[in-house]
Design a binder for these strands. Structure first.
Lengths: 207, 207
DNA sequence: TTGCTTGTTCTCATAATGTTCTCATTATAG
DNA sequence: CTATAATGAGAACATTATGAGAACAAGCAA
């Protein structure tokens, strides 16, 4: 519970409130309202929460937009920034223990969270040979164009949506949508019938 | 890019509306009308929906083609989405356009970033039937015990590390490490020779 | 065109939130 | 012990945010 900030000018509870506000913002991206602050530190009075918040204002840790809902602003940077990186420990199944390779590298998932991205849950086995199983979640970048070989979310006849590998015919008149499953056949459509909704940029699965 | 030092320029419901509009466009490819916005956030008044939409216009998030039906255009996406969550659009590949999953409209990846987790890059095809391909990244929770059926990172003879499905023999004297690849055979070791380093909790792939 | 739908502008109410108090209780220093 | 600071509850009030719906204008389709 010890943090790097040593703040002797705050009481324990004021410290607790500041801590809560920082964590709240990290999680929800918006500051808490007084009711939430109160609950966050285990009391029931908005008035008391307000008193703590004012103390933090006077101590110079935060500002408030007086009257506005969720009007708290942090003045110093938030130590609880959400993490989107993980230590990457090296390749597995090689001859050495994992521990022998200290975390010198990390993997950054922030590109998964871009503004035009969304996640879709996959139903069915049509992409099983590409390692995309029924129930997996795929991450799609919202785009209207794709390159040959991309895996795309395609809308057919403004009606049916599928995840397939994309290929254009030589003159661009037809579009071939190729399942990655040896038991299924590629489908060919006139280009006008197919609209790209997005391109696969990632895939993930929770166990 | 989102920092912590700001007061939200949108109220809770205004954010909800922005979120709804983005999701609506992703699903139906056209912007919603006010009636749909109203229903989308659980109110019945077109007038109120209009007020929210106007607030978003003034905040610079959207534009409207004044008077036109479905005249909303997105300008910038909302910065209020935490970097560990993605909008989740529902299941793909069924016969219909993507539908939202009721009750669950985003996926949260924050559990991937726990302190005891690390990422490992997979080498080889031994888990290919489980949809884990060569080059994939798996997310491991650092643990020393596992249950039967878990996929684990196991260290054999303090020397060799592999990713396999874990199974204990009835008396616990032996441990079977099962590859998910029909061309490979399970391996059996005396329990002392195998040490669990972690358990698979997630898997991801970048394209 | 006609008739219906949709967007826009209002007013009126109500709920939710921030703010300021008073009063009581607990912890702590001296 | 007493004095003081810190804490908690909650009432009362002001302001902000929200919701319903009427009335009218503008778009849209048959």
């Amino acid at each position: 519970m010890r943090t790097s900030n040593f703040t002797p000018d705050l009481t324990d509870n004021q410290r607790k409130v500041l801590d809560f506000i920082q964590r709240f913002i990290a999680i929800y991206t918006v500051p808490p309202k007084l009711q939430e602050v109160a609950e966050g530190i285990g009391i029931s009075s908005r008035g008391v929460a307000h008193r703590y918040v004012q103390a933090l204002v006077e101590a110079g840790y935060i500002e408030t937009d007086s009257g506005k809902h969720r009007g708290i602003r942090l003045l110093k940077s938030n130590p609880y920034r959400p993490e989107s990186r993980l230590p990457l420990l090296g390749e597995i199944a090689a001859g050495k223990p994992i521990e022998a390779i200290p975390g010198q590298d990390e993997i950054d998932l922030s590109e998964f969270f871009g503004h035009n991205n969304f996640a879709v849950q996959v139903k069915g086995d049509s992409m099983i040979d590409a390692g995309i199983l029924d129930g997996d979640t795929v991450i799609i970048e919202f785009r209207e164009t794709a390159d040959d070989g991309d895996i795309v979310v395609a809308l057919i006849d403004e009606n049916e949506t599928t995840l397939k590998r994309f290929k254009r015919s030589q003159r661009g008149k037809y579009i071939k949508l190729i399942p990655e499953n040896s038991e299924m056949e590629p489908m060919v459509y006139e280009a006008e019938r197919v609209r790209i909704q997005g391109v696969l940029i990632g895939q993930l699965r929770k166990y």
